[in-house]
Structures are given as structure tokens and as C-alpha cells.
């Protein structure tokens, strides 16, 4: 059965965030002396909250003269109280259930997303991207699999079928999705990002995270390549799980960007257990 991508944006309006994010936002917001940076940290570790906050600040409500790339960036422009109340209104929708009919383990999914986010940021630094833009890589890593949350939430039977098939046949998940439903999670996430006027580089990195050669721009800062690479690295480390059983080798574009293949880049990066431990902390309630 084909999935109609045009109905997705409306569905996501009512989509709740992760239990970890919701619980922490409610807790922080109940303290009058809540530090802005603590609130930012919670939002930027929750894919649903991040996506929705970026959607709002990039919307026509503000018509800002430049795209907003990260939660910090949003706080500078629209103020911490507006961001806080927005997070509260998202928290009020409820929480994503820990298990769903699709059989996607949300804790493992969150670990995967956070892991890719941290490694993507690390790779940004590795590529010599300035500090202030490295945060954008983190956001791209965090949101790259957003389409899967949407599928698990709104098309659980169809998505379960894909997850099962990918596991049984040891095929990559996005190919199974494409074959079964005519659309895959990378495209769903990318289209949402575009529909919501998120920064173009971010939308591209989400849309093309399985095929960076389609999204990477000449002279770009390498966000697409970094998200692709981070995705493979985190899966090689066995950290988290987002339902894809395969680890892909680097296509030429990615090896060129890093001057290394997957195992080469991993040995250059060295021990990532500290980074992964930090990411895991956020998945715990």
C-alpha cells in the first residue's frame, strides 16, 4: 500500500515528543529559576521537539530574514520564554509510547539519533567547520531518521512489515520501504523539513542521508556526507537501533570528503565510548 506524503505534515502537528524530553521539560518549567541552557539542552536532545521548534521559528509567523538552524539560534531570535512555552505546548500533547505497533523500540531509536548527532558534530570539527556551524551538524544527525518516528506513529502496520522484511532478508530498510510503499523514511523526513521551511542544508541532509551523492553540494560544508558517515559509524559501534540491519560502505564522495573509508575514519576518530555515554545519558528517564 502506498503512503501519501502530503497528509504527513498535518499528522505530525499532533505528534507527541519522546517521554524523556516531555518529562524533563515539565520538570524544568515548573521551577521558576530554570536555567535557559538546561531547557535548550533538553529540547535539542529530542528529535520531535527540535523539529517542531525549528518549524515554528522558520514559519511565516515570524517571516525572519534568515533561516534558524538550531535551538540556540532560535532562542537568540525569539527569546527563551517563547521557546519554553512552545516546548510546554508540545509536552502537553503527551508522550510517544515506548513501544508501538510497528515494533520500533523508541529508546533504542533515540539512542541511535543522539549517537548520530554527536558523531556528526564531531565530524564537522574534523572537517574544520567553524564551531558555530558544527551545531547544525548535530541537528541534522538528530533529525535524520525523523521519518521513521512518523511512520511508526501513523503507519505502524506498514512500517512493521518493512522492519520485519529488512531484518529477515538482511536488506537495507529504506529500500524495503521504497519497494513496499513507494516512499522511504528519508524522503518523508526531508519533505517535512522542506514543507516547514527548515534551512535547506538541513532538509537536504535529512532527505539524502542514504544517498549523499544526491544532496551534497559542490563547495558545501559536507553536512550530507557527515550525517551519512556518522550513521554508519554509530551502527558499527552497535549503539542504539533504528531498524536498519545493514552497514553501508562509504561511496566515493564520502571517502573523498574524509580521505578515508569507514574503518579508516573510525580509527582516526579513536575511542568514541565517552561520546556514546553522553548520548546514552539522555535516553535514560
Amino acid at each position: 500500500m502506498a503512503i501519501d506524503a502530503t497528509e504527513v505534515p498535518d499528522l505530525v502537528e499532533r505528534m507527541p515528543a519522546f517521554p524523556q524530553g516531555v518529562t524533563k521539560v515539565l520538570d524544568l518549567a515548573s521551577r521558576p529559576d530554570c536555567a535557559p541552557k538546561a531547557l535548550v539542552q533538553v529540547i535539542e536532545h529530542d528529535p520531535v521537539m527540535t523539529m517542531k521548534v525549528l518549524k515554528l521559528v522558520n514559519s511565516a509567523y515570524f517571516g525572519l530574514s534568515r533561516p534558524i538552524n538550531s535551538i540556540n539560534h532560535g532562542v537568540v531570535y525569539v527569546g527563551i520564554n517563547t521557546i519554553k512555552n512552545l516546548a510546554l505546548s508540545i509536552a502537553a500533547i503527551g508522550m510517544l509510547p515506548k513501544s508501538n505497533k510497528a515494533g520500533l523500540d523508541m529508546n533504542q531509536f533515540l539512542a541511535h539519533s543522539l549517537g548520530v548527532a554527536s558523531v556528526a558534530k564531531l565530524l564537522a570539527t574534523h572537517l574544520g567547520v567553524p564551531d558555530k556551524d558544527a551545531t547544525d551538524f548535530f541537528v541534522a544527525g538528530l533529525l535524520h531518521d525523523f521519518g521513521k518516528v512518523v511512520l511508526a506513529q501513523f503507519k505502524p502496520e506498514e512500517f512493521r512489515h518493512c522492519l520485519d522484511q529488512a531484518a529477515e532478508q538482511e536488506r537495507s530498510l529504506h529500500e524495503v520501504e521504497l519497494e513496499s510503499h513507494g516512499i522511504s523514511h528519508d524522503e518523508i523526513g526531508g519533505r517535512l523539513a522542506e514543507a516547514w521551511k527548515l534551512p535547506t542544508a538541513l532538509a537536504h541532509a535529512i532527505h539524502h542521508h542514504h544517498h549523499p551523492e544526491h544532496g551534497a553540494e559542490d563547495g558545501g560544508d559536507g553536512m550530507c556526507e557527515a550525517v551519512f558517515a556518522a550513521n554508519q559509524i554509530v551502527r558499527s559501534l552497535g549503539f542504539g537501533d533504528a531498524g536498519n540491519p545493514l552497514i553501508a560502505e562509504f561511496p566515493p564522495l564520502v571517502s573523498e570528503r574524509f580521505g578515508n573509508d569507514l574503518s579508516g575514519l573510525m580509527s582516526v576518530l579513536g575511542d568514541l565510548s565517552g561520546e556514546m555515554e553522553k548520548a546514552r545519558l539522555f535516553t535514560q528517564l
Partner: peptide, 8 residues
């Protein structure tokens, strides 16, 4: 122009 305050 949007200026910083606890509301827009």
C-alpha cells in the same frame, strides 16, 4: 523588527 522579550 522582533526584539527580545518574554513574548513576541
Amino acid at each position: 523588527m522582533l526584539l527580545n522579550h518574554p513574548v513576541l
